[in-house]
């Protein structure tokens, strides 16, 4: 065999053996490692994609939840606002009512106080008037006063029908003098019962079946006080009338 041909064959076999050895020892493990790595990468990418999808779903749900919560809180806030406004209105209403009531009550108290003070004033004035009349009469006390009072009583008795005048009783502060008795008998006729009542102060009080004619200092003073302070009913109507 020629060396060249042997070389040729040997080189071919040598290279094939080398290729087989390298394929077995070098390329196969590297290919396996690369393929495994690629598969792992694909798996990881798949897992990552999966996880991302899950995360997106979760974030979508969270967003929806947040929006719902926001809507709810908005409604609650609105409701709270409305109720607060209502409450404020009611409170204002109540306050106004209380205020009005207070004002009315205060006005009433003021009115009462005014009424009371007015009544007190009138009483005082009446008392003063009665007292002054009594004092005046006391200053005028004497036979002249008695006579004047008797004349007044007689004038009043004259308006009464004659048949109703008797029997009459006469009460006087002091024993009647002749002139007064004469005047009375002229009106009442005879048979006048006389009685002395010191408390009357001055003048006479004639009691007939038709009624009593009072012309004493006491009664004059009382009438004077009554004129100033007319008798009132419980509601104070006469006072309002006096005010008006």
């Amino acid at each position: 065999m020629s060396p060249a041909f042997t070389n040729f064959l040997f080189e071919a076999v040598n290279f094939l053996v080398l290729a087989a050895v390298l394929g077995w020892l070098l390329f196969k493990p590297i290919r396996r490692a690369l393929d495994a790595e690629q598969a792992r990468h694909a798996q990881e990418a798949e897992a990552a994609r999966h996880q991302r999808e899950e995360a997106e779903a979760v974030s979508r749900a969270a967003r929806a939840e947040r929006e719902a919560a926001g809507r709810e809180s908005e409604e609650r806030r609105r409701a709270l606002l409305a109720s607060a406004r209502d409450e404020a209105l009611q409170a204002a209403e109540a306050a106004k009512r209380v205020q009005v009531e207070d004002r009315r009550r205060l006005e009433k108290e003021l009115q009462d106080w005014r009424d009371a003070s007015a009544a007190e004033l009138v009483d005082t004035i009446g008392r003063i008037a009665a007292e002054s009349v009594r004092r005046l009469l006391a200053a005028l006390d004497g036979p002249a006063l008695d006579l004047a009072l008797v004349r007044a009583a007689c004038a009043e008795l004259a308006s009464v029908p004659a048949e109703a005048r008797a029997p009459a009783s006469v009460e006087s502060a002091r024993p009647l003098d002749a002139r007064a008795r004469g005047l009375l008998e002229e009106v009442l006729g005879a048979g006048v019962r006389e009685r002395v009542v010191t408390a009357l102060g001055a003048g006479v009080r004639v009691t007939t079946p038709a009624g009593q004619v009072d012309a004493t200092a006491l009664s004059v003073a009382r009438q004077a006080a009554r004129a100033v302070n007319p008798p009132r009913d419980a509601s104070g109507a006469s006072l309002e009338g006096a005010d008006a």
Partner: peptide, 19 residues
């Protein structure tokens, strides 16, 4: 032939550890 065998052995020895 000798050098080619040597080359093959060299490659084997050098690349088998890589694999």
């Amino acid at each position: 032939m000798a050098t080619s065998v040597a080359t093959s052995l060299f490659l084997w020895g050098a690349l088998a550890p890589v694999g």
